[in-house]
Amino acid sequence: MSQFNKLITDQLVTMDKLLFLQAEIERCQEIEKELTELQQQSKLESITREITIMKEELKEIQKVFQEQTTEVIQMYSEEKVLV
């Protein structure tokens, strides 16, 4: 497998993680909204912490994805020049 194809594959794996985590955050935010409406403070605090942690993970994954995108663009440009 060429280096370019490997970079693309790695980036697709990262995108899957990113999309999964975004969906989980949305799910937890719905739960947070429901708990707020039900005024269940202890459960609300727990889900709020979980959302905060997932948002931090999401930032890290987005950073990795951006770095991979830059690397893919560089590799593509280098291969294009060689051709």
Rank of each mutant, 00 (worst) to 15 (best):
M1K: 04
M1F: 15
M1P: 01
S2T: 05
S2V: 13
Q3Y: 15
Q3S: 11
Q3K: 02
Q3F: 14
F4C: 03
N5T: 04
K6P: 00
K6S: 11
I8R: 00
D10Y: 04
V13Q: 07
T14V: 15
D16K: 11
D16W: 09
K17A: 15
L18P: 02
L19V: 14
L19T: 14
L19W: 14
L19G: 10
L21P: 01
Q22K: 08
A23R: 12
E24Y: 08
E24K: 07
E24W: 07
I25C: 05
E26N: 13
R27A: 13
C28I: 08
Q29L: 03
E30N: 12
E32K: 02
E32Q: 13
K33E: 13
K33G: 06
E34H: 09
E34P: 07
L35C: 06
L35A: 05
L35Y: 02
L38G: 07
Q39V: 13
K43F: 15
K43G: 09
K43W: 13
L44A: 06
E45L: 12
E45Q: 10
I47H: 00
T48D: 06
R49T: 12
T52N: 11
T52R: 07
I53F: 14
L58P: 00
E60T: 10
I61L: 15
K63T: 15
F65E: 04
Q68V: 04
T69D: 03
T69S: 12
T70L: 07
E71K: 03
E71N: 03
V72I: 15
V72D: 01
I73G: 06
I73L: 14
Q74I: 05
Q74E: 14
M75C: 08
M75F: 08
Y76T: 04
Y76C: 07
S77Q: 14
S77T: 08
E78Y: 03
E79S: 09
E79F: 06
V83P: 02
V83T: 08
V83W: 08
